[in-house]
C-alpha cells in the first residue's frame, strides 16, 4: 500500500526537498527507537488489553461461555452484583483476606526486620528460612498446610488433643477456613515484608540515631520518632504490595478449601472461576472480573496517595 503511493507519485514534479536538517534526522532516529517496544506492546494488546476490553463487552451480555449466541443485557450483570447476597458475602471475605493479611504482615514483617537487623546469632540462617516460602508455589504451601490442619492425622489436631481438646475439622467451618487461609497467606509471604523493612532499616544513616542518642532519646523514643518516620517509604511499598496480593488471593484458597463449604471461604477470584466454569455465566463472571480490577485499582491508588501524602507531611 505504502509502496504503491510512492511508485505512482510524480517523480521530481516538485523540486527535491532540501536534505532534512540534522536535528530532524536526530528526531527521526529517536522516534524509530520506539519500535523497540513494539513486541511488548503487541503482546499487551493481544493478551491483556484486548481481554480487558472484551471482558467489559462480555460483562454487558448473557453469554454462557461456550455457545455462539449471546444477547446484550445492558447493565443487568452489574445490577446483579449489588443485589447478589453471595457476591456481597464473598466481597467481605475478600476484604478480610486483603486487609487482614496486610495488617499481620506489617506487624510480623516489621518485628522480624527489627529483630534480625541487630546482632542476633544465626540471623543469616533465620532470614533465609523465613524468606524461603515466598519462593514456593502457594499451591504447594497450601497442600502442606492442608496436611497440617486435616482431621485425622493432622499435626495441629494432635496438639489440640494433647491439650485436652477435641479433634476438629478446622477447614470445614467458615471461621476456621477463613482464619487458616488468612494465616497461611500472611505467614507464607511475611518474608517479603521482612526484606522490605530490612532494606529500609539498612538505609537509615547511623548519624540520625547517634544524634537522637546525644539528644537523650531512649530506645522507645528513637524508634517512635526517628526510625518509624524514616521507614515510611518501606511501609508504603509493603502495604500496597500486600494489599494487592491479599485482594487477588486465589491459589491457596483453591487448595485449602476450594472456596467452600458453599462459598463461605471464597474470594472474588475463586468465585469468578466458579461462575464461569461451573455455573456457565460468563457474562456475570466477566462483570465480577471488571469489578475486581476496579476495586484493586481504586484501593491501590488511594493507599498510594494516602501513604505518599503522609510521607510529604513528615518531611
Amino acid at each position: 500500500m505504502t509502496t504503491d503511493v510512492l511508485d505512482t507519485a510524480p517523480p521530481r514534479s516538485v523540486p527535491p526537498a532540501a536534505p532534512p536538517p540534522r536535528r530532524r534526522s536526530g528526531r527521526f532516529r529517536g522516534a524509530s527507537i520506539n519500535l523497540l517496544a513494539l513486541p511488548a506492546l503487541l503482546l499487551f494488546a493481544v493478551f491483556t488489553i484486548y481481554p480487558l476490553i472484551s471482558g467489559v463487552a462480555i460483562s454487558f451480555s448473557d453469554w454462557d461461555g461456550y455457545s455462539a449466541d449471546s444477547n446484550p443485557v445492558g447493565g443487568a450483570n452489574y445490577l446483579r452484583l449489588f443485589t447478589d447476597d453471595t457476591f456481597r458475602a464473598v466481597l467481605i471475605t475478600t476484604f478480610i483476606y486483603g486487609i487482614g493479611s496486610t495488617v499481620v504482615q506489617q506487624v510480623l514483617g516489621l518485628g522480624l526486620a527489627l529483630a534480625l537487623d541487630g546482632k542476633l546469632a544465626g540471623r543469616g540462617v533465620a532470614r533465609a528460612i523465613i524468606y524461603l516460602p515466598v519462593l514456593v508455589s502457594p499451591i504447594v504451601m497450601g497442600t502442606f498446610y492442608y496436611l497440617l490442619f486435616q482431621y485425622n492425622t493432622g499435626a495441629f489436631n494432635d496438639v489440640v488433643v494433647a491439650f485436652g481438646g477435641e479433634r476438629q475439622a478446622w477447614l470445614s467451618t467458615q471461621g476456621g477456613g477463613v482464619t487458616i487461609i488468612l494465616a497461611v497467606n500472611s505467614i507464607q509471604f511475611v518474608g517479603t515484608s521482612m526484606i522490605i523493612y530490612l532494606a529500609g532499616l539498612q538505609g537509615i544513616a547511623p548519624e540520625y540515631i547517634e544524634a537522637a542518642i546525644l539528644d537523650g532519646a531512649n530506645a522507645g523514643q528513637r524508634f517512635r520518632h526517628v526510625v518509624l518516620p524514616l521507614l515510611q517509604p518501606a511501609f508504603a511499598t509493603s502495604v500496597v504490595l500486600n494489599l494487592i496480593g491479599g485482594l487477588k488471593l486465589f491459589d491457596v484458597i483453591q487448595v485449602l478449601t476450594g472456596g467452600g463449604p458453599g462459598t463461605s471461604t471464597s474470594s472474588v477470584s475463586t468465585l469468578i472461576g466458579r461462575t464461569y466454569f461451573d455455573a456457565q455465566s460468563a457474562g456475570y463472571s466477566a462483570a465480577m472480573g471488571v469489578a475486581l480490577f476496579f476495586i484493586i485499582a481504586v484501593l491501590t491508588i488511594l493507599a498510594n496517595g494516602a501513604l505518599n501524602r503522609r510521607r510529604l507531611e513528615q518531611q
Binding site: 461461555g65 487477588k248 469468578i272 472461576g273 464461569y276 466477566a286 480490577f293
Partner: peptide, 28 residues
C-alpha cells in the same frame, strides 16, 4: 508524551488481577 503514556499503561497493567481477564482470555 507518548512514551510517558505507555509507561503509565504499563504500571496499570501491573495491577490487573489474573482472574479479571480469565473469561475473555480463555475463550480467545
Amino acid at each position: 508524551a507518548y512514551n510517558r503514556g505507555i509507561l503509565a499503561i504499563n504500571v496499570g497493567l501491573m495491577m490487573v488481577p489474573a482472574l479479571s481477564i480469565l473469561v475473555p482470555l480463555y475463550s480467545m
